[in-house]
Design a protein around this nucleic acid. Structure first.
Lengths: 329, 329
DNA sequence: CGACGAGATGTAAACGATTACATTTTCTAT
DNA sequence: ATAGAAAATGTAATCGTTTACATCTCGTCG
């Protein structure tokens, strides 16, 4: 494997000059430049990034840490990050934790180690304390799904308000018995639930049957079954994710409900599945690409200008009305 | 940021001894080890991986390059890679190309640059020639979706045979007018189509109407519409991906078909969506986790023992019969 | 008691680039 | 022709580790 020294020798110049050509620096004569290019070509030389990065003390790599790539919600968010990063010469790589804190720590260590310049967290599985101590020293941004009480820039939507809007939609359709499928230990789910209850309270409704799932189809199915069996008076279900909402529709149908005639269902995230199922799913959409893009923007500022003030960027959500919700009969 | 020199000074030893402790080497007295650990603690020292990797000329990083994370088929494949890699101390990162050859080249350059030790390709978008010249010099494995004619180890299923089996299933149910939704420029799709036609030929059927999509729901919907309108006699459709198969079901239903009574549909991949839709989708399943695991195994062998003979590992597929296919009336 | 070997530690040379500073060459203006 | 500026190039230190080799310190054994 050829090094810069080999190239320099072959071209009859010093390594400094080769380096200048490599980095497009001015003040190298065309003749020399050509000789160097030829030597690079002949030796099939590739600069060793380890040497370069060591000297520069940066890598141009940015990590996105998320639980898994199976949630198609993340796809667009990550795309926003990638494109915004690429526009400023950062390479984005995806690291999956499978909700294993040790795996997350391992990836954060890559930043400690200087193998990556910074990290964007989606749905971290560490404690606020652990995260806090990390983010004091290294560039970190939280995006979308986050741990509260940590001094990182944060890019998300107003989940409480979104939950409120979902419930409002059902209430305006006349529903008064509304159940929720939430997810335990997920801050956004807590906020959505809070917002939902606030809307119910405005209609004088104190009762809000809630079951919990973990974002899988199976868990959503079970939660919906439980809700519908324990509270037969329910006419609507709000699930904090589309996958669980789809499962709820199926569970409802399997319990002799018709959606939306006897059971309305509203989801969250607007993933592909939500318009593939039948009936198509009413849901809350987030500006996924923009969330990712803004998060990357924040991270790059941090990497290049150091720790920033605790920024919190809140984006707009929208409700997408489809076939799964209807006025109560 | 503390360096190994700072730690050595503080502990009153040489950097060599600190390094020995860091790497768990023998022959350091307990007393010294303790002093060094204390110094590391006090200085909040983290070894700089850039220096280390430069010296060792390896990083322990492995890249998985794929078009996008939105295809949930990849999720389990990648999990197999991650776990098998982790078991041998390799860190796996996911890189998405969005089918952009320049992005793919950029990621391959990380290997050229020595920022990663090797790479697994799923559905590369480079030419066989370009890939070939890369894989002669660096550790590469292709997995699942591949470019033919390149000397990399390959881990996949027998796509031709799988296509044959899908068609056989429909033929045995009595279908004689079978359409295919394929994907242009995808080798596995070509093979599946070939296999399908071989099965038809065995039944003396020469006609096999084929339309093309690009794995998106929309494209599958359009392809199915086209097939059903141009060939009203069709009673069954084989789509080379579940997403397109689901779209075909919907298109069929929107054209007044009932699935499976008047139209049978079979897909490929067994993604979550395939059992969420109604009717649930008959499909061909691949051993996803095992594909990924075997691919990583191959890669590690290459990284640690150098270029291997052109290995091709073929895994078993299975047909999963659900509600979307039925005997012809 | 002295030699020897094992164990503990230190010295210094890599690894492959970048870059501040020094030097040489070339050009311009008088 | 020559001073001086500008352009081109070179020298060598540096980034933070690891590790071959050298050295030192003991305890053991004949």
């Amino acid at each position: 494997m050829a090094t810069i020294v080999d190239v320099a020798k072959r071209a009859g110049v010093s390594t400094a000059t080769v380096s200048r050509v490599l980095n497009g620096s001015a003040n190298v004569s065309d003749k020399t430049k050509e000789r160097i290019m030829a030597a690079i070509e002949e030796l099939n030389y590739n600069p060793n990034a380890l040497g370069r990065n060591l000297r520069r003390m940066r890598t141009g790599l940015v990590l996105v840490i998320l639980p898994s790539i199976s949630n198609s919600f993340f796809s667009q968010v990550v795309k926003g990050m990638e494109q915004t990063g690429a526009a400023q010469s950062y390479t984005t790589m995806i690291c999956t934790t499978r909700s294993n804190p040790d795996r997350e720590r391992m990836f954060l260590n890559l930043v400690r180690n200087r193998q990556a310049d910074g990290v964007i967290l989606i749905s971290s599985c560490l404690s606020a304390e652990e995260l806090q101590s990390f983010c004091l020293q290294y560039p970190v941004v939280q995006c979308s799904e986050f741990i509260p009480g940590v001094d990182t820039p944060l890019v998300s939507i107003d989940n409480e308000h979104a939950g409120y809007d979902a419930a409002q939609h059902l209430l305006k359709l006349g529903h008064r018995h509304i159940g929720v499928i939430a997810a335990r230990g997920t801050h956004s789910s807590d906020l959505r639930l809070t917002g939902c209850r606030r809307a119910l309270a405005e209609y004088g409704i104190a009762d809000c049957p809630t079951a919990y799932g973990n974002f899988t189809y199976q868990s959503g199915y079970g939660a919906a079954q439980q809700l519908l069996q324990e509270h037969p008076q329910l006419t609507a279900i709000f699930a904090v994710s589309d996958v669980m909402a789809c499962a709820a529709m199926r569970a409802g149908q399997d319990l002799e409900h018709r959606v939306p005639e006897t059971l309305s269902v509203i989801g969250f995230d607007n993933i592909t599945m939500s318009y593939v199922v039948r009936p198509s799913l009413t849901t809350i959409a987030q500006p996924r690409y923009e969330l990712g893009s803004a998060a990357m923007q924040q991270l790059i500022v941090q990497i290049e200008n150091g720790k920033q003030s605790h920024n919190c960027i809140c984006m707009e959500h929208t409700i997408i009305k489809r076939e799964s919700t209807a006025a109560i009969l």
